[in-house]
Simulated scan of single mutants.
Amino acid sequence: MHKVLTDKKTILLLTLPGLFVYTFAILAPIFLSVYIGMTDWSGIDKPVFIGLKNFKTILFSDMTFWKSLYHALLLALSYLFIQHPIALTFAILIDKIGGRAEKIFRTIFFIPAIIPIIVTSRMWVSLYDPQYGLINKALDLFHLGFLKQQWLGDPKTVLASLIVIMMWQGFGWALLIYYAGLKGIPEELYEAARIDGATGFNLYTKITLPLLKPVIKVNFTIAIIYALKQMETVYLTTNGGPGDASQFIANYLYIKAFSSYQYGYANAISVLFVIITLLINILFLKVFKAENYEY
């Protein structure tokens, strides 16, 4: 066995199938997208090579692209600084409840994550309806009619309203990951800390949060990636409107490709999108450096 694992020809033969699949499933489409991004192509006629013109237009003239990217980054920050602290707090509370109630609340909070996106999107569109929606009806009921809005129809409120929908949809996953991380922390550590005099909030700042760092890192990474590639909810609720007030980069790419039939331009957006995503994740990993954690 040792001879097999040290033989370079054998290693090459064993890795060839994987390299073959990786090349044709990942590398080839990427290089093809780069090439198509350098063309003026409607998807029907023969592509016309135009070099870096599409990339220059996107980077220096296309304000919708930058606005869409800004919205995606704003969603990522909303995940990290609004959704995740709330999810972690509820995960801690559910973990401490115990018994049958723990299972019930764990299930209730995870329900939004298992409902199809098309169902939750249409539900929220109904809730936000300016005439018949439950949100405006509730405001009337509590004599707060002055707060009523056209939530998804007003450029001033549409982005915040859309972010609320997407945070609600992903809340269950964030909570579940934190909950699983909490279950992995040995109870003996808390008991030892209590013997040493630690109480209440100190237990969470000195034990829970430090030991949850690997879980927090994974959850944050998932949140950033999910925010950058967000498309389905946008398409099913506002499609980026009104105007481009709620446009996100993945949905903008889709519109350029399948509504405007600018396949060359859309591929240029996709290439820049991949590069930006990689850079953001590399920066995040640099900030959140890997550490060794032991219980």
Rank of each mutant, 00 (worst) to 15 (best):
L16A: 10
L147P: 07
K67I: 11
W124D: 00
L5E: 11
Y190H: 07
L27H: 14
T277R: 00
L73R: 08
Y252H: 07
L139W: 06
Y132W: 09
Q230G: 09
L19R: 04
Q230K: 09
G99S: 06
I111Y: 10
F109I: 08
M167H: 06
E191Y: 03
A101N: 15
I108A: 14
L69V: 05
V34I: 14
G241Q: 06
Y79Q: 04
N267F: 05
L144G: 14
A245T: 12
L19S: 06
G18M: 07
I276A: 11
I97K: 03
Y132L: 07
L189S: 03
E291T: 02
A174Q: 05
V48S: 13
S61P: 10
P155Y: 09
E291V: 07
S33D: 14
V125W: 05
A25C: 11
I44R: 10
I280K: 01
L279K: 01
A266P: 00
E291I: 07
S68E: 02
T39Q: 15
K137S: 06
I30K: 13
V218H: 11
K156F: 15
L285R: 08
L144S: 14
L211K: 14
A223P: 04
D95F: 10
L5N: 08
W41T: 06
L59I: 15
V4C: 08
E191N: 07
P17M: 01
F109S: 02
G153M: 04
T107Y: 07
W124T: 00
K67F: 14
F220D: 14
T15D: 05
A227S: 06
I115K: 09
V234G: 06
I114M: 08
L147T: 14
Y204E: 03
I11V: 15
V125C: 02
I225V: 15
F171H: 01
E188F: 01
L176A: 01
I207E: 05
D154M: 10
D45E: 09
K213R: 13
F90G: 05
L5C: 13
F31Q: 06
